[in-house]
Design a protein around this nucleic acid. Structure first.
Lengths: 182, 182
DNA sequence: CGCCGAGGAAACCGATCGGTCTACGGTCGG
DNA sequence: CCGACCGTAGACCGATCGGTTTCCTCGGCG
């Protein structure tokens, strides 16, 4: 049996991603099968719920993007971009949830923004660790560059409303080659 | 004397960028010094106004990003990323207006989405023209990659709420080098 | 059985949403 | 001096916003 809290977080994660954070609390509670009363007992405000739902999405997100154990650093990095490429083939793809939420909220002090920044940093850290393992000269710069390509690829897929078709993988490959990560 | 139409488009362009498309029509009209009645005589709906204001922003946007006449293709391409770097130093920077609006609207059929796609394509076309002038093997792919880096760099600046500090320029440089555009 | 807390349904709050409409103040050409 | 017209101010519409509150129905436990 799922708790009201879980149902709220799941419904929020899906609705906020699909329709934006402008979705009303009433619609959200109805989708979660939870009363507004319970929602406001579980969360201080809608803003807190946004942040919490974003946080909850992260593990699943990582599970899709990050590679399983094993493989060369190059393959492990490229796995992320291949997984993103697959995601953009789904018609429900609306870009990276972290980027989308931060973009919608504008306010840099919003609690959800800290969540987004933290999880985006985790992806950058993964790239940096692989680059370091491969002995790249400047792993942090390469990691930042790969993260930018990742988010730029997501933006492209959203704007054009079409799959990436290998463009993200190709760009990441070019950067890996340039950095000597073979 | 500015026309009500111009004032509306200017106010909409600034407010929608700074606070998002969720800004109300009342606040918008007050900022523009135009009555709601006039607004709805000039535009069919708020959605049309969003699209029109985005369209109006584009020339100024191009003027800031695109290089003046002259210079090598490489320098002309890098000028775009240097200009973007400067933009991210401003505390009012909220990312590329086209990307931000498309991200907020979700709906791919929204009139503003076509505007965003068109103007993003214009940037890609600029990159492709420079690449072609420099005799690059696959100018269209390079142009798409540069556009992704551009948007990824914008997303990074928004998420981290800090300037790019050369990261966009460095990444674009790496891609130019990789493509043999010296 | 009675009691109690958890939680759902829904009324309610003031504010605001996108959008329409009336009424009035200006500024023209005749 | 006069209508014709453009545009503003703002009331108004039903709906919805984030958030609070009241009421009532449960299930578990003594």
């Amino acid at each position: 049996m799922t708790t009201p809290r879980d149902r709220l977080l799941d419904a929020a994660g899906e609705l906020f991603y699909r329709e934006g954070v402008g979705v009303g609390v009433d619609a959200l509670c109805k989708a979660a099968g939870v009363s507004k009363r319970s929602m406001y007992l579980l969360f201080e405000s809608k803003d807190e719920l946004i942040a919490a739902s974003l946080d909850r999405r992260a593990p699943g997100h990582d599970a899709v993007l990050l590679p399983p154990d094993g493989g060369t650093p190059r393959e492990r990095v490229l796995h992320v971009f291949r997984a993103q490429d697959d995601l953009t083939r789904q018609p429900t793809y609306r870009g990276c949830p972290m980027v989308a939420t931060a973009t919608e909220l504008k306010d840099a002090t919003h609690p959800a923004n800290a969540v987004a920044r933290r999880h985006k940093q985790a992806l950058t850290d993964f790239f940096a660790a692989e680059a370091r393992a491969a002995g790249v000269a400047d792993p942090d710069t390469l990691a930042a560059q790969l993260t930018m390509v990742f988010d730029g690829a997501g933006a492209r897929a959203v704007l054009r409303a079409e799959p990436l078709d290998g463009l993200g993988v190709a760009t990441a490959t070019a950067l890996l080659d340039a950095a000597g990560l073979t």
